[in-house]
């Protein structure tokens, strides 16, 4: 059995185990014998933990896949789906809805976030134009994320009430707490479409290994690839941020974790990155719930605490490679 297949199977088994663990674990530990519709603890599973668990797996998979596709597209192992501004744009949308106190209706915040993602994506596409250039794409993304970031900071500093400020700050940290089936239903079609689009980029990303000229001479259409990547990543990241807030680093870390097993070919990294992303977020979400803290540790913070040191590790390894 080849290494890629065994890794994918192992990840699937891991996801199944983490899925079950995620339904059991939390402030209230629910043993398997309580898993029946009549049990008083059943609503905790059916209405709280199950949607949260499904959402964690979906968001993790979408972010992992987006990260692998972005790294392949930019041919840079330090690329992250947040790099091109869509997550900052989505966050800004959500922050605006919180700023004006629209969060009363549960669907308004995700709707604003998705609008923010779509607007950012449109501006990005307009800035880059029809050139299909990777350098323009990266620079435009960096500009957009910094503009969206500064507007988010502005919204925090001008927030009408201290309550709004605290709501915005808490939301920005990213979490899966109290998510419902509505959130799952909202995110599912968008994430699925995004993942399908990204799954189509595999062979073309492989061709891009040889650089842009060689890839174009092999019949790669750079504009079509850029469209697939932009729309695919925007759907995945936009829908993730809309339902879970900003959860960073998954897209950066996960492809690095799977490359030692499946090699560096971009298309080979895509599927295992999606699976490993789902597993990582499921496990992280179980851990933040099981932590004996007074209020639940925010998932976004937990991932950043993992991601920072990992980034440092990558940097040190690269430095060794350069020496």
């Amino acid at each position: 059995m080849n290494r890629a297949l065994s890794l994918n199977l192992a990840l699937l088994v891991g996801i199944a185990a983490a899925f079950v663990l995620s339904l059991l674990a939390g402030k209230v530990w629910i043993p398997l014998d309580a898993w029946s519709v009549g049990d008083p603890r059943w609503p905790i599973i059916a209405e709280l933990r199950l949607p949260r668990t499904v959402l964690a797996a979906m968001v993790g998979a979408a972010l992992g896949l987006s990260g692998a596709a972005m790294q392949g597209y930019l041919r840079n192992p330090l690329a992250d789906p947040g790099l091109f501004g869509v997550s900052s744009g989505a966050a800004l949308g959500a922050v605006i809805s919180l700023y004006f106190g629209y969060a009363a209706a549960p669907w308004l915040l995700p709707a604003f976030a998705l609008t923010g993602a779509a607007v950012t994506m449109t501006i990005l596409a307009l800035l880059v134009g029809r050139s299909g250039s990777v350098i323009l794409f990266t620079l435009a993304g960096v500009i957009l994320s910094s503009v969206a970031g500064s507007m988010t900071a502005l919204a925090i500093s001008l927030a009408p009430t201290p309550f709004a400020t605290s709501q915005i700050v808490t939301w920005l940290m990213g979490a899966l707490t109290d998510r419902s089936w509505d959130d799952v239903m909202l995110a599912l079609p968008l994430l699925a479409l995004g993942c399908v689009l990204l799954a189509f980029t595999g062979r073309t990303l492989d061709a891009l290994t040889l650089g842009e000229s060689a890839a174009r001479s092999m019949g790669v259409d750079p504009l079509r690839l850029q469209l697939l990547i932009v729309i695919g990543v925007a759907l995945c990241v936009g829908a993730s941020v809309a339902t879970a807030g900003i959860i960073g680093f998954i897209g950066l870390i996960v492809p690095h974790l799977v490359r030692p097993f499946v090699g560096n070919r971009p298309s080979a990294v895509l599927l295992p990155s999606a699976l490993a992303g789902a597993l990582l977020l499921l496990v992280a979400d179980c851990l933040v719930r099981a932590m004996p803290t007074v209020s639940e540790l925010r998932l976004g913070i937990a991932m950043s605490m993992l991601g920072g040191p990992f980034f440092l590790f990558l940097l040190l390894r690269m430095r060794r490679g350069l020496a």
Binding site: L210, G211, G219, P266
Partner: peptide, 30 residues
């Protein structure tokens, strides 16, 4: 066009450290 014309660009880069067989197989892309 890509099936008829093969271009070997100047000083071609290889952006990911793949093995030789994988790299040669990329030529089948068209």
């Amino acid at each position: 066009l890509a099936r008829q014309i093969g271009l070997l660009p100047q000083g071609a880069d290889v952006h990911w450290d793949v093995d030789v067989a994988t790299l040669v197989a990329l030529g089948r892309y068209p």
